[in-house]
Nucleic acid binder design. Sequence first.
DNA 1: GTAACCACTATACTTTTGTATATCGATATA
DNA 2: TATATCGATATACAAAAGTATAGTGGTTAC
Lengths: 120, 120
Amino acid sequence: MNTSKAFEKAKSCSSQFILAINDTLNVLIGKWKLPIIGVLLYGKKRFKELERAIPGITPRMLSKELKELELNGIVTRTVYDTIPVTVEYELSNSGKSLREVLDMMIQWGLNHRKQNMSRK
Amino acid sequence: MNTSKAFEKAKSCSSQFILAINDTLNVLIGKWKLPIIGVLLYGKKRFKELERAIPGITPRMLSKELKELELNGIVTRTVYDTIPVTVEYELSNSGKSLREVLDMMIQWGLNHRKQNMSRK
DNA sequence: GTAACCACTATACTTTTGTATATCGATATA
DNA sequence: TATATCGATATACAAAAGTATAGTGGTTAC
């Protein structure tokens, strides 16, 4: 690849592609997003179920992160008109498709560990 | 999948897999790691070249992030005995292989945007 | 009537992350 | 002699992220 081609690619990269990467990172970053998504990958859950499933999380953080995930279209929130109310959180299609990204990250992570071992 | 099978999978997941994902996230997280890796994907660079290529970064942050990336085996640092010294930063094999992860993230990010558009 | 459960919210605080600005020692250039 | 370059480091500060602890309003069980 010559310099101007590389430059063009770098330019096209920096606009949509970097944005796309940041979108992806933003739904995974933070201490609690991954644990929440991890639990929801096994099916929909209620607030207290999530709280119990994720050791150490406070209701404040759970509430905050769920709101963000909902805003970003990763999680859907459904309120059932029972007494008392039942609220269920579930992964959207986008949310479910994160599994592929996570699988890729697992692959890279395991491979990286192996390479770092042999480096020493 | 029955409950005990799901539980076993969740358990096996929570140990190595979650660690692997976190390893991957840790090399990407932070305001400046992605820009640095992005530039280095086009070839090795010197300290000042990186500083110039990444608008807004301070030498403090560049130095700090490069140290972390080196410690994590993503970047190699080579000092040449010239006058004045030349220092070159280059992606390791692990670092280069991040491209696959980033490509996956680009795919997910673009797809997610499309789905969110149609959601409205 | 009091204790517990659900789905949260409020307030105050600590820790982590990032910024701003100046400086270092060695060397080269005008 | 003054100024600039390289590859950083030092100090102080601001902003963001996360924690601790308590409380809300409604409902059910004992």
